[in-house]
């Protein structure tokens, strides 16, 4: 049997279960909406300003750094499996790659992209 068939069955079972949970939410329980209840919750105060406010630009930087480094991590996986067969040459090449990775990390560190005050 194709090993991905059990994965699909597992996905289907999870989706079914989640569907049951969502149905429970919807089917039971009272429905009593009111304008005050529908306001965004701000600890009892009247909501001030739009909810989708601006937030710190640092979070965008974290997202970009994540994309860069996570892709480099993915490149390491094939090497990690084959690294016994590749031997000394493989180690040297990966050493070079890791040096670049560490260089990149040192650069963003030095430029202050990882600082949170």
């Amino acid at each position: 049997m194709n090993p991905y068939v059990p994965v699909l069955i597992s996905f289907a079972a999870a989706v079914l279960l989640i569907g049951v949970f969502l149905f429970f939410c919807h089917a039971f329980g009272p429905k009593a909406p009111s304008p005050i209840k529908s306001d965004p919750f701000e600890c009892g105060n009247p909501p001030s300003g739009p909810a989708h406010d601006r937030f710190a630009v640092r979070f965008y930087i974290v997202a970009m750094l994540f994309l860069l480094f996570d892709i480099e991590v993915v490149f390491l996986y094939p090497w990690a499996i084959l690294f016994r067969e590749l031997g000394g040459l493989g180690i040297m090449e990966m050493g070079f790659f890791l040096t670049l990775l560490v260089g990149g990390l040192a650069y963003v560190w030095w430029r202050g992209a990882l600082e949170w005050e």
């Binding site: 965004p40 701000e42 909810a51 989708h52 974290v62």
Partner: peptide
């Protein structure tokens, strides 16, 4: 959720 606290929590959680 259309809520400031939710958005802040989400941004923090994602990062």
């Amino acid at each position: 959720s259309n809520n400031k606290y939710s958005l802040l929590g989400t941004v923090r959680a994602t990062a």
